[in-house]
Design a protein around this nucleic acid. Structure first.
Length: 554
RNA sequence: GCGCCCGUGGCUCAAUUGGAUAGAGCAACGGACUACGGAUCCGUAGGUUGGGGGUUCGACUCCUCCCGGGCGCGCCA
């Protein structure tokens, strides 16, 4: 389990706080964090500003009062100063960093594991694309995000399960079956037409070919009801198979694939309806059954059961989330494409109607991707067939690059993805920049072994930092657990990307300014090898949270 | 029309969630050790944070009104 430097500093500050101001409540919400500028020290706290309101004294005065006590608490570990209008800056001594550096080396691949999740059971549901066509690039962004978020939450101490919800019921699937049937008939030289609102994509022709190969023309004689059911199921199975294959090549896997149809088959849709009726949140109008979602801020009430007696998609979705609750998850995360954001209010309302806790459902909205190719934007829409399959992107730029580009930004913002730029093997490309740092360390280790040196050998002396660059590098490396925490709390993998890029930069600078392997300076060489070992662990662990490889050579 | 998201150097994005003089990478320009991988490093230039008003010790961040862009507003899923 990795320790957090900021927590360490906070604890020391808290002890002083109790001595000096016993009247203050235990939980004063002050922050300790890295400074933006070197001259402000390594860490700074805004404690004096926070206390100023309670104590009715100017921040600067309070900071001065605190300084003496703090200085003695941190003696030998750090130097302190009051600066600005009341900031207390912390300048760490080298010895302070030593145990944290040792921790990286000891924990290795486990470094960065923290315990904020307390084993809480969390489910992340993402992608969940209708099995009516292949995955496109926008789905790829959702896939990378959900997968990485799950990894990060796991690292932060949550018990995480990943799930894909298969929408294998409803009208769209009926239309899909009919579309496949039309393609099948075409292949057999029969008159056929794809129904309106149907699926014209070429992939269905491929599916139809497989079908012809397996069954010849025997399906034409089937009874209509059986035939429809058969085409539906066949289309869903084959398309799901290809979706699963694409996801695997994108290194995205799921713990569960949950079928919407089973909710109907097991009576869970009825069960959810009963529950909603019992809670008195439904009413009948125009022959349909409604949920009064406006009660919780939706702009309209929503239909649960149509006039013709069949439940809406909304209803099965409520049943699905009720099912998640019954499975014992304390929190569920839904990752949705931006086109579904209008769906949020009714979904939240339905959670209230079921009587579930306020924070049970968390929804992340992933904005669209604009693919650029030589300045030309390429739009995508599943319905019109003018989409770019995720498969093509993987084939063109590779999984590492695609995942990094999807993850390097807040998913709530529109992403510009320039394919030509992403293909360049140069410093334009942040993925390679980070991976190169890792490969470089591997290369240094290969050289070291040739010289008979073992980077894993523990140090016999104390660490000494030769210059600011070295210290800077180590300081950044041991900040990793902090980044894992922030990233988990905010649900933001991009913080990991930014951090890794920054750490790689610090390493490249270090590498260019210092000779690591120097036979005339064996002790310094040993220390630097230890730093490299630590950086390698952090780079590796960080990349693994993104689902990106850490190569030995490039 | 209503709702949600977004607006930061020429381009793509940060800014520790209200903290100190708004930082990086591309692109531009100028440089780097006959040694560990030059896919690297060092430096220069570039800003009224879309605009106005407000809240306070302090605003890119919060409130309000405009402007511009994206998405949504089915008894579809």
């Amino acid at each position: 389990m990795s320790r957090l430097i900021t927590e360490c500093i906070r604890e020391s500050i808290k002890s002083v706080l109790h001595q000096l101001y016993p009247e203050c409540p235990a939980a004063v919400p002050f922050t300790v964090d890295q400074t933006r500028e070197r001259k402000h020290g390594d860490y700074a706290t805004n404690l004096a500003f926070i206390l100023s309101k309670k104590l009715r004294k100017p921040p600067q005065e309070i900071a001065e009062e605190l300084l003496e006590a703090l200085t003695s608490v941190f003696r030998g570990q750090a130097q302190l100063e009051v600066a600005g209008k009341g900031f207390i800056n912390v300048f760490l001594e080298d010895v302070f960093l030593e145990p944290f550096l040792e921790e990286v080396l000891q924990e290795g691949d486990e470094y960065g594991t923290i315990a904020i999740g307390n084993g809480e059971r969390v489910q992340v549901e993402f992608v969940s694309v209708n099995p009516t066509g292949p995955l496109h690039v926008g789905h790829g962004k959702c896939a990378a995000f959900g997968d990485s978020l799950a990894k990060i939450l796991k690292r932060a101490g949550y018990t995480v399960e990943k799930e894909y919800y298969i929408n294998d019921a409803g009208k769209q699937i009926d239309v899909l079956g009919l579309s496949l049937e039309a393609r099948y008939r075409e292949l057999l030289g029969k008159q056929a037409e794809i129904p309106s609102g149907g699926y014209y994509g070429e992939y269905l022709i491929g599916v139809a070919r497989m079908l012809r190969e397996e069954r010849g023309d025997t399906l034409l004689e089937m009874e209509e009801r059986d035939r429809n059911a058969f085409f539906r199921q066949y289309a869903v199975d084959k398309i799901l198979l290809s979706i699963r294959g694409d996801l695997e090549d994108f290194r995205v896997t799921f713990d569960h694939w949950f079928s919407e149809r089973t909710l109907y088959e097991n009576g869970e849709v009825e069960g959810a309806l009963d529950r909603l009726r019992d809670q008195q949140h439904t009413f009948e109008k125009d022959g349909a059954l409604w949920l009064e979602t406006t009660r919780w801020g939706d702009d309209k009430d929503r239909v649960l059961v149509r006039e013709n007696g069949s439940p809406t998609y909304f209803t099965s979705d409520i049943a699905y989330h009720w099912n998640k609750w019954k499975r014992g998850f304390q929190r569920v995360i839904d990752v949705w494409g931006a086109d579904h954001h209008g769906y949020i209010p009714r979904m939240r309302a339905s959670m209230h109607a079921l009587g579930l806790p306020e924070n049970f459902l968390e929804i992340y909205i992933v904005q669209f991707v604009t693919l650029l190719r030589k300045g030309q934007p390429e739009r995508m829409s599943t319905r019109q067939g003018e989409f770019i399959p995720l498969r093509n992107l993987i084939d063109e730029v590779g999984t590492d690059v695609a995942r990094y580009y999807f993850l390097m930004r807040d998913p709530a913002t529109h992403l510009e993805f320039d394919i030509e730029e992403a293909k360049k093997h140069s410093m334009d490309n942040p993925v390679y920049y980070v991976q190169y740092a890792h490969a470089r360390i591997a290369s240094v280790f290969r050289e070291a072994r040739k010289m008979g040196l073992d980077p894993e050998r523990p140090l016999k002396t104390r660490y000494v930092f030769h210059g600011e660059r070295e210290k800077e590098l180590v300081k950044k490396a041991v900040y990793f657990p902090e980044i894992v925490r922030k990233s988990a709390q905010q649900g933001q993998p991009y913080l990991i990307c930014n951090y890794l890029h920054d750490l790689a930069g610090a390493f490249h600078a270090f590498y260019n300014h210092h000779r690591i392997l120097d036979q005339s300076e064996p002790e310094r060489t040993a220390m630097r090898l230890r730093y490299c070992l630590a950086i390698r662990s952090v780079l590796r662990n960080g990349l693994s949270l993104l689902g990106i490889t850490a190569p030995q050579t490039m």
